[in-house]
Each structure stands twice: as structure tokens, then as C-alpha cells.
Amino acid sequence: MVKASKHAKSESMWAYIMVAPTIIGLLALNIYPLIDTIKLSFSKTLPFGLYELKGIQNYVQMFASPEFWRANMNTIYFCVLTVPIGIFLSLVVAVMLNTKIKGQTAFRAIFFLPMVVAPAAVAMVWKWMFNTEYGIINTILAHKVNWITDANIVMITCAIVAIWSAIGYDAVLLLSGLQNISKSYYEAASLDGATKMQQFFHITLPMVSPTLFVVLIMRLMASIKVYDLIYMMIEESNPALTSAQSLMYLFYRESYVTGNRGLGSSVVIWTVALIGLVTVVQFVGQKKWVNYEV
């Protein structure tokens, strides 16, 4: 008995030692900054890095700003353009990769390639290919489309690049979901005379729906937070900037170009609230289509 309590004591001592670096780090790097960001969002930004608590002024200013609402629309538009098409294409790639063909690993590696290239480099080459005057895409189309500078098109351009970048990553995740489906279901269905199409809709889709849900949530969150790609494609001087500026781009410009960190913090808080809302809606909606029975 004495020994057991000594054991428990040493166990909890070691536990505290082992969680200490992570917990101290989280408190200093995340919990304190979280509180500080909330505080900043209610503060007026003064010169020399000083702040003064001022109430809801930043939020009032933010909600009154057309640029902010435009950034919301842009972000939502970006999600609408990228998420459904991107996930559909990833699922197609994953299903194809799941067939028994030669070179399967090579194809998987090729689709995954953009993941290991920095988004900055990816954006550069696409910007070049989408160039109005000399870009290869307009040469092939034999049309001078203003992919990067036309306010009505620029978001579609960014969406194409975003889908192209993420397709392999999402396909790899979906593929691991597909590989978990027991072959016996397909064998039974084949014996009953089900066509490949029927098998896909009645076996594959319901069985992969939990993975599909995870990928959907992840992709949606990432799309709401989109920044680097748009930042690299659309520079400050681009006339289409306000048509492509996402919420996080607005946060960056407001905080680090204009220097109004209080207002910038309000934009982040708003974005987090938006992500939270979308996630809750997803979790409620999943009951209708995600199948957890095995």
C-alpha cells in the first residue's frame, strides 16, 4: 500500500515534468496571445506600439467598412468556388487511385507534388502562366483574358490554383478512407449483379462519408483562412485587389501595412467566429449524410 502511493506520487511528478514544456509553451504562445488579441480588438492603436482600451470602436469601424464586407464576400466566394469542385475532383482521383492499375504509386506521387512546393513558388508560376500578354494559357486559348487583373475573373483564377494545389493532399486522405472499405462488400454486390455505378453510390460513398466529412471540414477551414496564395498572386498595386482580398489578407494589410493592429485583431476575431459558425453548421448537417455504421 505504501509502495503504491509512492508509485502514484512519482507518476504524477513525472507527468508534470513531461507536460511542462508543452503547457508553458501553450500558455505563453497561445493562451496569452488569444486574450491579448481579444483585448487588442477593443483597443485603439496609438503610435510607438501603445494601445488604449476604447470599447467597441474597432468593430463599429469594421462593420461600417465596405472593404470588410467585400472581403467577407470574397472569402465566401472563394470557398464556394474551391470546396465543392475540389472535393469532387479529389474523390474522383482517390477512386481512380484505388483501382488496381500499374503505376498507381507514381500517379499518387505526381498528384501530391504541389504539397511539397511552397505556396509562394506555386503562385509565382501560375501567375506567369495566367499572364495576359505572354502567358501560355492565353496563348492556348487564343484569347486575351485578364486572369489576374479583371475584378470579375481574379477569384476564379485563384480558385483554379487552390484546387490544383490541394487535390493530391485531399485525394491521399480520401484514399486511406477508401482502402479501409472491406472488399467483401463489393464481392457480395457483384454477385447480386450490382453495376460499378451502383456499387459506388451504395457502398463506396456511404462507407467513405466519415473521411469525406473530415476532408470537407478541413478544406472549408483552410479556405476561410486563405491568404498566402492570394497574397502572392495579387500584389498591392493590382487594380483587382479589393475583388480578391480575403479576410486574412485584409487582416495582414490592416495590421502590418496600414499598422492598425486593433482593427486587424477585430478582423481575426470575426474570422474565427465565422469558422466556428461554419463548423457548427457542418456538424449539425453531417447527421443527414455521414454514415458511421460499419
Partner: peptide
């Protein structure tokens, strides 16, 4: 303590950026 881990995981990193930068500055 584990809930601290979960909180951090659920929040996008941008919410921490400005205070993190100011601490370093």
C-alpha cells in the same frame, strides 16, 4: 491541461500572430 491543447488546435494560428509578434518585438 488537455483542454488547453484542444483550444489551441481549434483556433486558426492567425489569432495568435499579432501578440506573438509584439512579444518578440
Amino acid at each position: 491541461l488537455f483542454s488547453l491543447v484542444l483550444i489551441q488546435m481549434m483556433l486558426p494560428s492567425q489569432i495568435f500572430i499579432t501578440p506573438q509578434y509584439q512579444m518578440l518585438a
